[in-house]
């Protein structure tokens, strides 16, 4: 299985890197807070896939599976907290636009 599994590594890596680029681009370019979170989600998806891929190739799929379950739980909590922060910001600013934030200045 190892040789075949190893041949998977680079093709998958290409697609994971593409997914990372999409997520990062989304986070960097957008002015919308929710869209930034969606970009973050895409990045986490890429990492999930990478972790599972690493486990499969190295022959420890069971362990990485356990790790991914933990990762998903943490991801949910972080996203819920983040949307809570976004909702509160929206309540105070009446906008989701990053350009209308940035009031913190000396």
């Amino acid at each position: 299985m190892t040789a075949q599994a190893l041949s998977l590594f680079w093709p998958y890596c290409i697609f994971i890197i593409m997914l990372v680029i999409i997520g990062l681009y989304c986070m960097l370019v957008t002015y919308n807070l929710i869209r930034a979170l969606i970009g973050l989600e895409l990045l986490i998806k890429a990492i999930t896939l990478f972790l599972i891929l690493a486990g499969y190739i190295s022959g420890h799929p069971v362990m990485t599976q356990a790790l991914v379950i933990t990762l998903i739980v943490i991801e949910v909590v972080v996203i819920v907290v983040a949307t809570g922060v976004v909702l509160n910001l929206h309540r105070q600013n009446q906008s989701l636009d990053v350009r209308k934030l940035r009031t913190i200045k000396d």
């Binding site: 986070m27 973050l40 983040a82 976004v86 910001l89």
Partner: peptide
């Protein structure tokens, strides 16, 4: 408000 903004920045 400032605290929420700082939190969002920190979070990302």
């Amino acid at each position: 408000r400032e605290a929420l903004e700082a939190t969002f920045k920190y979070l990302i």
